[in-house]
Nucleic acid binder design. Structure first.
Lengths: 187, 187
DNA sequence: AAGACTATTGTTAGCGC
DNA sequence: CGCGCTAACAATAGTCT
């Protein structure tokens, strides 16, 4: 029941990775379908997974060829424009989160000051009703938030540091020995 | 605040469609990125929208070429296998929902019988505590559910009946007159 | 037009079968 | 192994700025 908050990193456990792959691929196909229906546009995707011998293609091979033709029509130089590489996508993400982190820090600081004011000046009745315990927990929540954002940034940076495709996908064909070994791994 | 439950159909209102497109494209890119990181696989997408002069490509032009090469490598005959066309995707969807509809109907029937039993046999204290009003509302909820599933099936079927790409995407260049006319449309 | 916000709906991780 | 379930998490439609 989704107990973890998803750590954005290669899933080492083979079984879990495959399950996640299937579920998420399904979700993606649905979203792609919705996008093309809602907005009346053309899209195509190719997914190369070790679970199928052949790349999976959507919405159809014909559709892919059609969209591809359109893509190949434009001059080489233009093909590089308007593209969002995984790297720049991640970089942008990091920037945004660092901004968020700053904002959260600032907010935290303001909250602390506010709290001090209430404690020393005997503020509004509603606020007085809050016990110190509650205020403390509020503070902890904020700190947790900050921690989480920081961790996320770290993990994104880590992904960017590692060579292009994260860890190499597992070999398609394995000996029985390898399979047995794999089973001993825990994620 | 997401007040509607999303009617899966071409969005006629130009402004709303564009906003939805941008939001959903962003969400898609994120999900694609996550899939490739979590599962360590290769993916690529091409999106042809009227909002950009050139097809948008992800994760990068190079990535697309690489994935394409892999795609083109397989024999023509194989390219058609393992593919899920939009049509078969939708058809599968419809089947599943019709099953769900049957199930819901059955459940509803059972609930009705249960309710009658309780009313005539003076059942458990907890159940007796439910007023008739509450039971009535429960029934209405179930019916609403059934209605919604039915509507969804209808709308999916409608999509399948209409020719491939839903309504033709709007022209890229429009005269001022056309723009003014478009503004008068309400979704 | 482009972002921020937030009530809602939608997706999915971990289980149990 | 793969499916169905459901709490927990994520995406997003409509709104305001």
């Amino acid at each position: 029941m989704t107990r973890k908050k998803v750590k954005l990193a290669y899933i080492k456990n083979d079984v879990a990775r495959k399950a996640t792959f299937k579920k998420r691929k399904k979700g993606l196909m649905k979203k792609l379908s919705e996008l093309s229906i809602l907005c009346g546009i053309e899209t195509c995707t190719i997914i190369c997974s070790p679970y199928e011998k052949k790349p999976e293609v959507w919405p159809s091979t014909m559709g892919v060829h059609k969209t591809l033709a359109r893509f190949r029509k434009m001059p080489e130089s233009d093909q590089s424009k308007n593209m969002m590489s995984q790297e720049s996508y991640l970089r942008k993400n990091i920037e945004k989160m660092e901004e968020q982190l700053k904002k959260q820090h600032k907010e935290n600081h303001e909250k602390e000051i506010e709290q001090m004011m209430y404690q020393s000046l005997a503020g509004d009745k509603l606020i007085k009703a809050m016990t110190n315990v509650e205020l403390n927990e509020l503070g902890k929540l904020v700190e947790k938030n900050i921690m989480e954002i920081g961790e996320k940034i770290e993990s994104l940076k880590k992904i960017m540091r590692t060579p292009p495709p994260p860890p190499p996908p597992p070999q398609r064909l394995r000996t029985k020995l390898q399979i047995l070994r794999a089973r001993q791994h825990v994620n």
